[in-house]
């Protein structure tokens, strides 16, 4: 039994380590990749649809003869930017709502959480598509849409955690000391739930990245003039029979990023929330 347990821990640690490395690699690619790659992701050439491993084009070229590796590297930044901004927005909205509901309790809590439940069940993609239909496609719409639709999940966790904290002695002491609600929430409760929230934030980042790439794939996200993994998959799908790498590589890049985020989030949760409240 103890052998099995030890093996499991080793396997989990190994997975987590790889996930964190992969995440760091992706972030590095997004930050400094474009400076390291000399090829221009937008320059067209007379050699379209070259296969992987062709001379001069390590990952081949797309239908307009553009270097696939350069496009992949340049594609990381817009996607990660949208994902990170949307996650920040979702975290901000979700934490505020959850803190208030958990701290005040009673009718506020009941009303807010009922709405959060409704929002959680609602198909978020539909909400984002409607936003895009009304306000037009673009990075801002994408960030707002994804941010709003991912906020309820975080609100739920923030509420559970802050309701637990609100019953503790240090909060009572603070109240007796004359501190007011907002101050208690932000200065006393927030620091104590931030760690556990962080794990969920990393998970949210993975969903946000998937949504952002998915909407770009549909043509409703990042404009097609900017290379990003979603619209690369879409553009490459037409050539799936002859040059499957064009659609496969950006799809794999998205999948690997999302999976690494998941395992990293899982690892954080194990480390920060051993009792499994989230």
């Amino acid at each position: 039994m103890s052998d099995l347990l030890r093996n499991r821990t080793i396997a989990t640690n190994w997975l987590s380590a790889v996930s964190w490395l992969v995440l760091a690699f992706f972030v590095l690619v997004a930050l400094i990749g474009p400076f390291l790659i000399s090829a221009d992701p937008l320059r067209q050439s007379n050699s379209p649809l070259l296969p992987v491993g062709s001379g001069g084009h390590l990952l081949g070229t797309d239908d307009l003869g553009r270097d696939e590796l350069a496009r992949l590297v340049h594609g990381a930044r817009p996607l990660l930017t949208v994902a990170v901004l949307a996650t920040v927005l979702a975290t901000f909205i979700g934490t505020l709502i959850g803190l208030a509901a958990g701290y005040f309790g009673g009718l506020v809590d009941a009303t807010v959480m009922r709405l959060v439940d409704l929002a959680l069940a609602f198909p978020s993609i539909l909400l984002i598509i409607l936003l895009v239909a009304g306000a037009g496609a673009g990075t801002t719409t994408l960030v707002i849409g994804i941010g709003i639709s991912l906020a309820p999940g975080l609100a739920r966790l923030a509420r559970a955690l802050s309701a637990r904290e609100a019953a503790r002695d240090y909060v009572l002491a603070s109240k007796l000391g004359g501190a007011r609600g907002p101050r208690i929430m932000l200065q006393e409760i927030l620091p104590n739930i931030a760690g556990t929230m962080l794990a969920q934030v990393v998970m949210t980042l993975s969903i946000a990245a998937g949504f952002a790439a998915g909407l770009s794939y549909l043509g409703l996200g990042i404009p097609a003039s900017t290379p990003d993994w979603g619209n690369m998959v879409q553009a490459g799908q037409e050539f799936v029979l002859t040059t499957p790498s064009l659609t496969l590589l950006p799809a794999l890049a998205t999948l690997i990023f999302v999976v690494a985020c998941n395992f990293a989030g899982d690892d954080l949760r194990d480390a920060l929330d051993p009792r499994g409240l989230s």
Binding site: Q237, T254, L255
Partner: peptide, 13 residues
């Protein structure tokens, strides 16, 4: 949270 579009394309290939 596997994105459907990437998963679908993987399945297609």
């Amino acid at each position: 949270s596997l994105p459907w579009f990437a998963l679908g394309v993987l399945g297609i290939v």
